[in-house]
Design a protein around this nucleic acid. Structure first.
Length: 294
DNA sequence: AAGAACTCCTGTTGGC
DNA sequence: TGCCAACAGGAGTTCT
């Protein structure tokens, strides 16, 4: 569900409530999400002050005062909501955890010292949380192989060229590969490729010179990636089915999609007579305009 | 060893 | 209306 712009929006929504606050207690309603939760999860968080909230790729990072980092990934359907009054914001009739009035898919609640509650719900449970020592975080398995941070200062056409050089996989698959560039997902890959007018089927290595330098296409792609992510964050991300901000409001960027979910619609480029097409690449839908994306 | 397929899980949607 | 297959903002694991 959430790609970089949605994760960043969630981070921005959570930070004012969490930074500087202390975790008073943790309700953990199951032992695992996608993976087992850390041993003694609740106990290790209790009493910890949150020093900062950061993001790396699609991970939200809560830096704790004991040198550990609470790492949170939303998977496809993970959702945080802030409950300022710490009441039970439960819709009637939707219960799951026996003996409680907790919503069916609400798995973890962080109760903060000032009375707010941070609630994590995740229907498909593809999300996960981990506790990682800040010192060795770069070498941790979750982060070691992560690729370029597309909004980082070091994300340049040259850097993009370096991670695409020699790749014989289609651009679509290469850009979804978090080991090359970390943070894009299905929507923003489609939108960035449209922005750069590059075909998702084009082999990734073909936009890099033999010397490993960026071609003009590669420069266009780097620009398009930065632009679409920045614009999407400014719009509060994209809300399709599950995603909402921490305060419950919705993103707006879905109204700006050029190709995603627009199969059969005319290409938005006034100079192009093409029609948006949907194909399947490595099991995922790809939307693009075959006439102007080459 | 790169690249594609399969897998986890639940909810929603669209076609017959 | 009802049933069921297809599909969904992800990504680790397993195959070829």
């Amino acid at each position: 569900m959430p790609e970089l712009p949605e994760v960043e929006t969630v981070r921005l929504g959570l930070a004012p409530f969490m930074v500087g606050n202390t975790i008073e207690s943790v309700e953990q309603r199951r032992a695992d999400l996608r993976f087992p939760l850390p041993a003694n999860f609740a106990a290790r968080l209790t009493g910890r002050r949150i020093e900062a909230m950061d993001r790396r790729a699609k991970y939200i990072l809560a830096r704790l005062d004991d040198g550990e980092v609470l790492v949170m990934h939303l998977g496809m359907t993970g959702r945080f909501t802030v409950d300022e009054a710490n009441g039970t914001a439960v819709k009637p009739g939707v219960f799951a955890h026996p003996g409680t009035d907790a919503p069916r898919h609400e798995h973890i609640v962080f109760h903060l010292k000032d009375g707010a509650a941070i609630r994590y719900a995740d229907a498909r449970r593809f999300g996960y949380m981990a506790l990682v020592p800040e010192a060795g975080m770069a070498d941790h398995p979750l982060f070691k192989g992560l690729g370029l941070e597309p909004l980082g200062d070091d994300f340049t056409p040259e850097a993009l060229a370096s991670v695409l050089a020699g790749a014989k996989t289609p651009l679509k698959a290469a850009l979804l590969d978090q080991r090359r560039i970390a943070g894009l997902g299905n929507i923003y890959v489609c939108e960035a490729l449209y922005g750069a007018r590059l075909s998702p089927l084009r082999l990734a290595g073909t936009i890099v010179t033999k010397a490993g330098k960026p071609t003009e296409r590669c420069t266009r792609l780097a620009d398009a990636i930065g632009r679409v992510l920045t614009d999407a964050i400014a719009a509060g991300g994209s809300s399709l089915r599950d995603y909402a901000h921490a305060d419950g409001s919705l993103g707006r960027f879905q109204h700006s999609f050029k190709v995603y979910g627009r199969e059969g619609k005319p290409c938005p480029d006034a100079d192009c007579q093409g029609v948006v097409k949907r194909i399947v690449q490595s099991g995922r839908s790809t939307f693009y305009c075959p006439s102007c994306q080459r």
